[in-house]
Amino acid sequence: MKLKSHKKNDVVIIEISGRLNAVNVHLLKKKFQEFCPEENSFVFDLTSLEYLDSTGLGGVVSCLKAATNNNGDLKIACLQNKTKMVFEITRAYKIFDIFEDVDSAVAAF
C-alpha cells in the first residue's frame, strides 16, 4: 500500500494505492494524523486502491470520524469496481459521500 497527499482548495487529498488491510492500516491512520487538527477537509482518492478488507475499511471510517469530530468531513472519490463491491457488501457506502472523481468531491465542500 502506498500513500501520497496534496492539497487543492484547502482540501487535503490522500491517494491510497495497493491493498489496504490489517497489515498496513496503521500507516494510513498515521498519515491522516499528520494533518490533524489543523486540517479538517479530506478526500481519499481510491483510483489505485486494489482491495481493502474490513480492517482497512475500519481505518477509513476512523479517519471519517476524526474529521467530523473536528467539524470537517472526509469524502471518497474514484472507487473502482472491486473496492466498490467491498463498500457495498459491508454497507460502508451508506456512511460516506462517494464521488466519481476528485474534483467533484473537492467541489462538494
Binding site: 475499511l57 475500519g58 471510517v61 476512523s62 470520524k65 459491508t90 454497507r91 460502508a92 451508506k94 456512511i95
Partner: peptide, 11 residues
C-alpha cells in the same frame, strides 16, 4: 446485522 450501524462503534 450487516448494515451501516456496524461502522458506528468502529473500534
Amino acid at each position: 446485522a450487516i448494515d451501516e450501524n456496524i461502522w458506528d462503534d468502529n473500534n
